[in-house]
């Protein structure tokens, strides 16, 4: 199915948000994940199944302050 990930169109097999991101090397526990403009909070939300034309973004939260 067709998705937009980090601003780029991409093809992906059916999966959950967590599976999709982990397959791309994203450390999901250290990231803020946005699905169709909404931030997914809590582990349950990351098990949401992706749908055609979803827009997914992941932002890595790294240390320093």
């Amino acid at each position: 199915m067709k998705l937009t990930y980090q601003g780029n169109e991409t093809e992906a097999a059916p999966s959950t948000v967590a599976e999709f991101l982990q397959a791309r090397g994203v450390a999901i526990t250290e990231s803020v994940v946005e699905l169709n403009g909404e931030i997914l909070t809590g582990d349950d939300a990351l098990s949401t199944a992706l749908a055609e034309n979803d827009v997914v973004n992941a932002f890595h939260i790294v240390a320093g302050g």
Binding site: E34, I39, V62, G64
Partner: peptide, 19 residues
């Protein structure tokens, strides 16, 4: 600066960390 979701604003390069 990036707007994320409804009410999060993220500043930084999201990459260069102190670890």
């Amino acid at each position: 600066v990036r707007r994320v979701g409804r009410n999060l604003i993220l500043v930084g390069d999201q990459t260069r960390d102190v670890r």
